[in-house]
Design a protein around this nucleic acid. Sequence first.
DNA 1: GGCTGTCAAGAGCAGTGCTCTCAATTGTTG
DNA 2: CAACAATTGAGAGCACTGCTCTTGACAGCC
Lengths: 265, 265
Amino acid sequence: MDTPAADAETTLRTPRERARAQTIADIVRLGREHLATHGAAALSLRAVARDLGVVSSAVYRYVANRDELLTLLLVDAYSELGDAVDAAVNAVPEHDFDGRFKALGRAVRAWALREPARYGLLFGSPVPGYQAPSSQTTTPGTRVIYRLIGILDGAYRAGALTKPARTAVVPSALSDDLEVIRSELGLAMPDELQANGALVWTSIFGAVSFEVFGQYGPDAFRARGELFEHHLTVLAAMAGLVPDGNPRDAPGAAATPLYSRPPAE
Amino acid sequence: MDTPAADAETTLRTPRERARAQTIADIVRLGREHLATHGAAALSLRAVARDLGVVSSAVYRYVANRDELLTLLLVDAYSELGDAVDAAVNAVPEHDFDGRFKALGRAVRAWALREPARYGLLFGSPVPGYQAPSSQTTTPGTRVIYRLIGILDGAYRAGALTKPARTAVVPSALSDDLEVIRSELGLAMPDELQANGALVWTSIFGAVSFEVFGQYGPDAFRARGELFEHHLTVLAAMAGLVPDGNPRDAPGAAATPLYSRPPAE
DNA sequence: GGCTGTCAAGAGCAGTGCTCTCAATTGTTG
DNA sequence: CAACAATTGAGAGCACTGCTCTTGACAGCC
């Protein structure tokens, strides 16, 4: 776990390869520390080299350039966030969709507050001149959203996702987009719930980003944990999730989810 | 409008002061261009000096350091965003609260897509080592949220803000925070609507940030305008706004807003 | 017209990413 | 075990950055 590159394929045979993998792991570890303390844009290969006790040019034997190190750190951060989210979600019973949704949200927020600079690298303004290679970053970068979709779609299939009080009409072009996603991921959710889910997704990160990036200002909202909990509750309702064993206003309404079959209209 | 520093106080008397103000305005203008093309972290005083046709050290006669130029650009961007939002909102009739809300959201998104780097400076990851001086940035930086609050509170006072289908309980510490804001701004909205309004606020910027920062990936959601319109509609409902002359599902329900007086419970 | 304040220029320091060459170390193989 | 070859680290160097300091020239003001 400390050396994420060491177990890349099988066990590395030659001592050279082992030493090389260890050095790369050290570089990533030091880069992660610099990232956490100084931010993404201030990440310096020379500083990493100094901490490694090596001259700057030597680092280029292991990492092609600064962008490649950024990519390694991006994957590293995405993976750690994904692990944190998975662990938090798995700790909640599978049938408790509302609880799993909130656990996901809390895990994202907790990780972001613990690692503000790395969160900024993932979800903040893009680093100028750096374009993440999607071949390496999409898989770890989509773990959280796929997990969220899995929770919502699982709830829908289990009849635990009721149509929210107000949805909005989904125009045709957007409906096509949603259909692509639905077929690619094998989802069952109809357009409205899927579109609301997308909003829930961005809203979670909007709330977390505001807190991590200091948009609230220094004074407003001292009880930010409570504020986030409130937001999670409202967002769960927006997604159509019903708290486990606590169906909305009228008891019994949750037993007949509106979308157990396609709407007649 | 082209020289934001020129009309700081009264008309500048001496030619020296006029020339100085003009130079500072030029520096801000060039800095804005560099910001737009290369991003915040890559903003270089030397590059600005080159474009200004002057040696690098000369810029320090007008701007104390890179951070002060960043502050000037921050205020500049906040003001332009605020102007764009104000113009868009004012173009909608005062009583059309739902229309004004959506105009605000659309204005934020349009400006952000037009000026991604400057949007990133305002709402993205903070620039490493730079702390915005709140004395200069809070006033322009709070224009949009104050405008949003004004729309929502105006709607509440006019009876056009109905309690959404689902709200969440507001715990005491958060309630205290909301009370501070309510008394400072002279708001009438109760806790639940205020808390939902905060979520609406962060959700708008979450959706815009995802789009501007490329979080959707290159393929997903081609109809992003429609997606955002959908989100605005759902968020308006979450805020409790009722479309003008189009009360929710049951006609007549909007005529008796739940919060015309404090809830009995 | 002369004084004074303001200004641009240039050199310089410390830092950055990155490339190249050279020497030494180290693992592998005959 | 010794020779070879691959790998590695060191160092110099280029072009860039923010920022400071000194010097000399210019222009406004009394």
